[in-house]
Design a protein around this nucleic acid. Structure first.
Lengths: 220, 220
DNA sequence: TAGATTGTTAATCGATTAACAATC
DNA sequence: TAGATTGTTAATCGATTAACAATC
């Protein structure tokens, strides 16, 4: 059995940026690209880019660089984007609706097949062609349909309970949009997509740079 | 002028988790909390938690820990959540609507005052009480209202153009939800809230753990 | 007091960057 | 050939973790 190299998380987070940039370059007619060009476009170090590309197994050629088509394929393969996986979404509020409505996730190999809610007013409706089903049917349907990915867009107070139902239903990964920590068996992958985290970075950096701007004129 | 300590980004990302946990504990009636309890609840190292808390300036007491109220206030202060800032949102699609609809951001000191779009069918409508205005008025209104934060929820192809308009309008920070790299003057803070990045981590970890699960039985 | 907990210093770990030989 | 670019090794950097004295 081939040993599976664990890809460092910072690297994983950069790969989608590479894919997006390469698609843009491809549409512009480029056939190959150097790590230098990628690095400059994304404000990274070119050595870092080469290291990242190395994990896909693609080798470049001195003076030429990398073949764009080959690189896109390898990157998508590495992230498993070519392999479409079905997912259930729990919590059909506005965030849930937005995620259902965003077509881009299909490009990443994510196919949302149903949504669940406990609000009778929502059950039986459709969001962009996706049925909103009764939350009490989640666990049973999840295991019968062999769903491996659950998306949590419920309020914080219901997150743990919904996660438990998904785990009992057999999911192996939970994409958690609620602001709560959830506890799961150690074999379940949990990824936190917390927008408040991102917003915290934005607002903090804003005050940090604001004060730096004040200091600079003083020192001049 | 007090020197402004730059808070490391990994620390910033953990602070909202602390705040959320502390709120939960507070509602349960707790008055104080130890770094050990926080660490266990969030699956972190207690030394790391103490280091993080240290940057807020709050000191604890041996055997007692930290006062929850004091800690929440200091953490919110550090992230500037107590200071409400107005923001413009560009791109009134489903993601934009979800962000407008999410009340939680007000808790983080973000107040969305208007949305902009170039689709005549959307201009003049309202989303949860927020007016959708003509995109061509963005720059002028932005500078007249002294807006400092712009939220980008436009398609990738329009992201750079919209960012340029925001920058000309005088924003100091852009929260970019589009999958594109945008280039801005170096004094503008850009935070990428890319869901595809998060999804990439989820799907990659899923295949990594899946293969590990296959290996373990073999080695037994 | 004894034991839990803080605050701090040192050690470790992992990711990024620098340096540079190999290649086309 | 000369120069751009890759791939790789070593150095650096920064964040996390370990160790432990101080404190209540």
């Amino acid at each position: 059995m081939a040993p599976v190299k664990i890809t460092p998380e910072p690297t994983i987070r950069r790969l989608p940026k590479y894919i997006h940039l390469l698609m843009v370059l491809k549409h512009k007619g480029y056939k190959n690209v150097s790590s230098t060009l990628i690095a400059e476009s994304l404000e990274l170090d070119s050595t870092l880019v080469r290291k990242d590309i190395e994990i896909t197994g693609i080798v470049g050629r001195p003076k030429i660089g990398f073949l764009i088509d080959e690189l896109i394929t390898a990157l998508r393969e590495h992230l498993n984007w070519n392999n479409m996986e079905d997912a259930f979404l729990v919590g059909a509020g506005s965030l849930g609706a937005a995620i259902i409505g965003y077509k881009g996730f299909r490009e990443c190999g994510l196919n949302i097949v149903a949504a669940f809610d406990n609000d009778p007013a929502k059950i039986g409706t459709e969001i962009k062609g996706i049925h909103v089903l009764d939350y009490t049917k989640l666990e049973d349907l999840c295991s019968r349909m062999h769903i491996h990915i659950g998306i949590l867009t419920v309020p914080a107070s219901e997150a743990q309970q919904a996660a438990d139902a998904l785990v009992r239903g057999g999911v192996k990964a939970i994409w958690n949009f609620s602001p709560t920590q959830i506890s799961t068996p150690e074999w379940v992958v949990v990824e936190y997509a917390q927008l408040t985290m991102s917003l915290a970075v934005l607002k903090r950096k804003l005050i940090e740079t604001a004060v730096v701007d004040e200091i600079i004129p003083e020192t001049n």
